[in-house]
Design a protein around this nucleic acid. Structure first.
Lengths: 95, 95
DNA sequence: GAACTAGGTCACTAGGTCAA
DNA sequence: TTGACCTAGTGACCTAGTTC
C-alpha cells in the first residue's frame, strides 16, 4: 500500500502525525480517533460506516479509479473514497 | 461438528489451550482467568457481569440466533454472546 | 506472604442523530 | 449524503476480598 509517496510533505499515506495531531489515513484531515482499525476523521468514519451498513454500491469512478483522496475533495468520488478506506485497512472488525 | 476437531487448531468449543495460552471459552480470545465458572477473557467477563447485574434483556438476534462468537465479531450480537456465555457454563456463582 | 477472582473504573469507540 | 456531536457499551486495568 503506502509505497513511498514521493517526497511531498510526507504524504498522507505513510504518515499519521502532523506535529502532534494524528491524521486521517484516508483523507489527511484531523483524525478523531481509531476507527475500524485505522486512524480516521469523523467524516471518513461515518462514510465507511454507512458504506458497510447499507452495503452501498457506489457508481464507478469516471476517471481512472485512482482519485487522490484529500480533505477538500473527499466527497468528489465515493467510489475512490471507499476504495481508499479499504486500502488503508478499514474493516468492520477493526482488524 | 464436535468430535475430532480435525487438525485445525482445535475448535474453541472443546479446547481451552492454544499452545500454552488458555483461551476464552466464549470467544476464543486470550483468557485472563477463571471467571464465573469458566476460562474467559476480560471482555466476556465484563460483558457477563454487566448482563447479570442489570438483568439486561438484549434485543433478539436478527439472524438465526446462532451467531458464531469470535474475538473479532463478539460485539456484533449481544444476544448470541450472552447465549454463548450461558451455554459454556458461565453463572453468577461460578458453578 | 503469594495467588487468585468479583466487581469497580473510566478512556475509548461503534453506531445513532440531524442540521446543513 | 455528509460529518460534528452524543451516548451507551466495551474491555484493560485496578482494588478489595478470599483462600492457601
Amino acid at each position: 500500500m503506502n509505497t513511498t509517496t514521493m517526497g511531498k510533505e510526507a504524504s498522507l499515506d505513510g504518515l499519521e502525525f502532523d506535529g502532534d495531531t494524528v491524521l486521517c489515513r484516508v483523507c489527511g484531515d484531523k483524525a478523531s480517533g481509531f476507527h475500524y482499525g485505522v486512524h480516521a476523521c469523523e467524516g471518513c468514519k461515518g462514510f465507511f460506516r454507512r458504506s458497510i451498513q447499507q452495503k452501498i454500491q457506489y457508481r464507478p469512478c469516471l476517471k481512472n479509479q485512482q482519485c487522490n483522496i484529500m480533505r477538500v475533495n473527499r466527497n468528489r468520488c465515493q467510489y475512490c473514497r471507499l476504495k481508499k478506506c479499504i486500502a488503508v485497512g478499514m474493516s468492520r472488525d477493526g482488524t
